[in-house]
C-alpha cells in the first residue's frame, strides 16, 4: 500500500517536471497560433492587407528557436500575395524563407511557379516549342520523306494504271481496273496493316518504311490513275488524230501531245490528292513508323501538354500551305500557253 502511494507521488513529480518546459513554450506557441487564427479570420473577412500585416508580426526565429511558424507565416504570405496578383511581393516572401533555409523545397517550387505565372502565355508556348520541336521536327522529316517519295511514285504508277485502263488489250485493262478498284475500295489503314502485319504470314517481311512506301505508293497511284485517265480523256480527240496524221505512234502522241496538255488540268485535283497525302501519312504511325503524328502522340503521352498537338498541327499546316502555293504557281506556269 505504501509502495503504491510512493510510486504515485513519483509519477506526479515526473509529470510536473515534464509539463513545466511545455507550459513555458506553450505560452509562446499560443501567441503565434493566435496570430495565425487572427490572420485566417481576416482573410475570411476579406481584409487581406490586415491579414498580411498580422502574419508579418510573426518574427524571424532567434538563435536555435524553432522556425516552423515563421516559415509557415511567410509561405502563407506568399500565397496570399500570389492570390492578389502581387508576384514580386510573393517572391520576396519566398526569398525571406530561402535566406534562412536555402534548400527549402516549398519555397523553391513556389518561386519557380511564380516565375512561370509571370510569363506571358506566348512565352510559355515558346518554352514548350523549344521542348517539343526537336523531336517533332525529326518526325516531320520522316513525314516529308514519305510525301516526297509517294509524290514521285504515284504519278508514274497512276499514269501506267490509267494507260492500262484505257488499253485495247482486254486482260491488261481488266487487271488495271481491278487494282484501282481494290486500292480505292479498301481503307488505306487496312492496306498498311496488311502489308506490314499480314504479309509476314505469306513469308514476306518488310520494314516499316518499305511497307509505308508501298502502301502509300499503290494507294495514291490508284487514286491518281482515275484523275489522269479523266485528264487524258478530256483532251480533244482531234489532238490524237492530228498527231497520228503526221505519223506519230501512240506512245509518241501520248508523250509529246496528249499528256503535256493534261498537266494544267491535272494540277488542281492532283494538288488536292497530295494535300490529302500529307495528312494520310499520319496513318503509317500505326505500323511503327515514327513520323510527325507519332512523335506528337509520344510527346503528348509523356507531358500531357496540349501545346504538342498545336505545334504538330502547325507543322502539318505549314506543309500543306507550301504545297498549295507551289501547286498554284506550277498550274499557272504549265498553263501559260492558253492565255499568251
Amino acid at each position: 500500500m505504501r509502495s503504491t502511494i510512493r510510486r504515485g507521488f513519483l509519477l506526479l513529480i515526473g509529470l510536473i517536471l515534464l509539463a513545466l518546459p511545455l507550459a513555458a513554450s506553450a505560452s509562446e506557441h499560443n501567441s503565434s497560433q493566435t496570430l495565425f487564427r487572427e490572420a485566417s479570420n481576416l482573410i475570411a473577412a476579406g481584409d487581406y492587407q490586415a491579414a498580411l500585416k498580422t502574419l508579418d508580426q510573426i518574427s524571424p526565429p532567434s538563435g536555435r528557436d524553432d522556425a516552423g511558424d515563421f516559415v509557415k507565416s511567410r509561405m502563407q504570405k506568399a500565397q496570399l500575395y500570389h492570390a492578389l496578383g502581387a508576384f514580386d511581393e510573393a517572391g520576396s516572401s519566398c526569398r525571406e524563407v530561402l535566406a534562412l533555409f536555402p534548400d527549402h523545397m516549398e519555397a523553391t517550387q513556389f518561386l519557380a511557379s511564380l516565375a512561370k505565372a509571370q510569363k506571358s502565355k506566348l512565352a510559355l508556348f515558346f518554352d514548350d516549342m523549344k521542348l517539343f520541336l526537336p523531336s517533332l521536327i525529326h518526325g516531320a522529316g520522316m513525314t516529308l520523306f514519305l510525301v516526297v517519295i509517294t509524290m514521285m511514285i504515284s504519278p508514274l504508277g497512276g499514269l501506267l494504271l490509267a494507260l492500262g485502263r484505257m488499253s485495247g488489250v482486254a486482260p491488261l485493262r481488266g487487271l488495271c481496273w481491278s487494282i484501282i478498284w481494290f486500292f480505292r475500295g479498301t481503307p488505306l489503314l487496312l492496306q498498311l496493316f496488311f502489308i506490314y502485319y499480314g504479309l509476314p504470314a505469306f513469308g514476306v517481311t518488310l520494314s516499316p518504311t518499305i511497307s509505308a512506301i508501298i502502301g502509300l505508293g499503290i494507294n495514291y497511284s490508284a487514286y491518281l490513275a482515275e484523275i489522269i485517265r479523266a485528264g487524258i480523256e478530256s483532251i480533244d480527240h482531234g489532238q490524237m488524230e492530228a498527231a497520228k496524221a503526221i505519223g506519230m505512234s501512240y506512245t509518241q502522241a501520248m508523250r509529246r501531245v496528249i499528256i503535256p496538255q493534261t498537266y494544267k488540268r491535272l494540277m488542281p485535283p492532283v494538288g488536292n490528292e497530295f494535300i490529302a497525302l500529307i495528312k494520310d501519312t499520319a496513318l503509317v504511325s500505326t505500323i511503327a513508323m515514327v513520323e510527325l503524328m507519332r512523335s506528337a502522340n509520344q510527346m503528348f503521352n509523356t507531358y500531357f501538354n496540349v501545346n504538342v498537338l498545336i505545334i504538330a498541327a502547325m507543322i502539318y499546316l505549314l506543309f500543306t500551305t507550301i504545297f498549295t502555293v507551289t501547286f498554284e504557281k506550277i498550274e499557272k506556269r504549265v498553263g501559260a500557253y492558253e492565255n499568251r
Binding site: D236, A245, G247, M248, S249, P260, Q261, Y337
Partner: peptide, 25 residues
C-alpha cells in the same frame, strides 16, 4: 503493224476542219 501504219501516215499529209494544232507548242 503500227510501225507500218505510222510510216504510211508520215507520207500522207492531212488537214482537218478544226485545225487541231497542238496548243501547248
Amino acid at each position: 503493224t503500227p510501225k507500218n501504219v505510222c510510216a504510211l501516215r508520215a507520207e500522207i499529209g492531212m488537214v482537218f476542219q478544226h485545225f487541231h494544232l497542238f496548243p501547248h507548242m
